[in-house]
């Protein structure tokens, strides 16, 4: 019997800084829109488990898009004429995320991002807080230096292998091998120089150490970091969260890529956060959600592979 994921993929044309970007996104679910940001050099596939999770899609319209140059989103038409190497800036990153949300006519979505997608939540909270209803910043901190390095894009070094391997150890050793290597594969497929160029934002063009205190706190920010993450250590996240008003900090037993390296573990730690967001926004939850705060995990299974969502899976109802 054939089996399909419930995910639907489409392309939308997004205008940003005077250029048009044909942008790929995937979505599933109904209710509160939740836009998901991938990590540096990869794409929205990192959220495939959350996109397929019926416990999430019952109340959230989960949307994961590929940034320009990533995944199935192509670079701008004139990219071959660029004289400088690709570099993601804080300004472009912020403006593109907002432009994407507006292109889909989303009203105050939840924004969830990991790694660089987590760090940009701080910039958006500073500059565009009125556009969002909550931020979920995974593996995020106010300053993450040291990653914009030449070996990641070098003519004598295989870019895909070195990029993927340099992040492999960021995952917890006990995360399932299949998922750790799938995450490795996403990285190995990135375009030449794109991971490094994203890290220009991550390590060079974003230093929020003196800005975090200025975040108003009108929009809640949930920080979640795995204890095996050495790029953004628990200490770095805790130090950041202490400065951000209306924030929570959750440290859990995972690594730098929680949505893709161990989706079952991630579900355990994100569920209470999603319940809080639902409680604060009950009018917008999906039609099927009628058990908020009711049952928690009713069945146990170590893995929640999305291909067979009804086979002995964990069931968490909101």
């Amino acid at each position: 019997m054939n089996t399909h994921d419930p995910i639907v993929g489409r392309y939308v044309y997004v205008q940003c800084e005077g250029k048009t970007y044909r942008t790929y996104y995937e979505e599933h679910g109904e209710g509160i829109p939740m836009v998901c940001l991938h990590t540096a050099g990869t794409d929205g596939r990192q959220y495939r488990h959350q996109l397929c999770d019926p416990d999430i899609s019952l109340n959230f319209r989960v949307i994961a898009f590929d940034m320009p140059w990533h995944g199935k989103s192509i670079p701008p038409a004139d990219f071959h004429l660029m004289e400088d190497e690709y570099k993601l800036t804080t300004k472009f990153y912020c403006e593109f995320i907002v432009a994407f949300c507006r292109a889909l006519e989303l009203r105050k979505p939840v924004l969830m991002g990991q790694s660089m997608g987590g760090n940009i939540c701080l910039a958006l909270a500073l500059r565009y807080e009125s556009e969002f209803s909550a931020f979920i910043a995974l593996e995020a901190c106010d300053y993450s230096p040291g990653w914009w390095i030449d070996p990641l894009h070098h003519p004598h070094i295989h870019g895909g292998e070195v990029v993927a391997t340099s992040v492999f150890g960021l995952m917890a050793t006990q995360s399932p091998d299949d998922y750790r290597w799938e995450t490795w594969w996403y990285y190995a497929q990135g375009g030449p120089g794109i991971f490094k160029g994203d890290l220009y934002f991550y390590s060079v063009d974003s230093d929020f150490r003196d800005q975090c205190q200025k975040i108003s706190g009108k929009v809640p920010i949930y920080f979640l970091t795995g204890e095996y993450d050495f790029a953004c250590t628990p200490e770095m996240t805790q130090r950041t969260a202490e400065k951000v008003k209306n924030s929570e900090c959750i440290i859990f037993g995972g690594g730098h890529f929680p949505t893709s390296e161990d989706p079952a573990k991630f579900k355990e730690v994100i569920t209470p956060v999603l319940k809080k967001i639902l409680s604060a926004d009950p009018e917008r939850r999906g039609q099927g959600g009628n058990a908020l705060g009711g049952r928690s995990i009713s069945e146990s299974r170590s893995s929640s592979r999305s291909e067979r969502p009804n086979d002995g899976r964990k069931v968490i109802e909101f």
Binding site: G169, M171, A172, T173, Q174, Y228, F230, T233, G255
Partner: peptide
């Protein structure tokens, strides 16, 4: 299962 920050050579080389 190594303890946190000993899971990779880059973790051990981290400035922290």
């Amino acid at each position: 299962i190594p303890p946190p920050m000993f899971n990779d050579i880059w973790a051990m080389a981290h400035p922290l």
